[in-house]
Computed example of a mutant assay.
Amino acid sequence: MNITVVTLPETAVVRLRCTGPYGGNNRNMMERLKSWARERGLLENGVILGVAWDDPVCIPPEQCRYDVCLATKGCLPEPEADIAPGRIPGGRYACFLGAHTPSGVQALWETSFAALAEQGLSPAPGRPVLERYRPERLDRGLCELCIPI
């Protein structure tokens, strides 16, 4: 498995948050945020992030936080209703590339942590794992899982 190590800057975002077991509502939240961004002309140049803040091995699943975020170049619009401003911490991340399909994203989650360990790397506590959906990757049917190291 190919790993790319990058240093990501701290990033301002707008976000929707779900608290509870990972997976159930993620797709609906993603579609809602994309629709909001599309209405404002932000989707074409924006980066969508799925942000898993908590490790369900250490935190009870009902307390796990998952954000669907939009980062854009320039100013973010004023959030509305339950779309709130937020920040994603910067730092070093190991990024894994996979198919932008439900099964492709699931495969990234299932294989990337073992691949990270095989390289002698370990996840850094205190920073979230990112699903990164950049337009230039999505155009080729790809997305990334970025694990903090």
Score class of each variant (00 low, 15 high):
E80F: 00
A99M: 03
T111A: 12
P79Y: 03
E131K: 02
R137Q: 13
I83R: 00
C75H: 15
F113N: 02
A115V: 14
G104L: 07
R134Y: 04
A117L: 10
Y93R: 04
E118W: 04
T111Q: 13
G120K: 07
C95F: 03
L142Y: 10
Q106Y: 13
L108P: 08
E131W: 01
L130G: 04
A81G: 13
P128N: 12
G98E: 06
V129R: 07
G86S: 07
P89R: 02
G91K: 11
A94Y: 02
L121C: 01
R127F: 11
A84K: 14
R87Q: 09
E118M: 07
V129F: 10
Y133C: 07
T72S: 07
L97F: 09
V105K: 01
W109P: 02
D82Q: 09
G98C: 10
P77C: 12
L130F: 05
T111C: 09
V129Y: 06
E78D: 11
P123I: 05
R92N: 14
L108F: 06
Q119E: 10
A94F: 00
T72I: 15
G90Q: 05
R140T: 11
P128Y: 14
R92M: 15
R87F: 09
V129Q: 10
W109F: 08
A107W: 14
L76C: 03
R140G: 12
G104R: 04
P77Y: 11
Q106R: 15
P85R: 05
V105C: 03
G120D: 02
A84P: 08
D82C: 06
V129G: 13
A117Q: 14
F96W: 00
G91R: 12
E118P: 08
P128I: 15
A124I: 10
E136R: 05
F113E: 02
A124N: 14
L138D: 05
R134W: 02
G126F: 07
R127W: 12
I83V: 04
R132K: 11
G98R: 04
H100E: 08
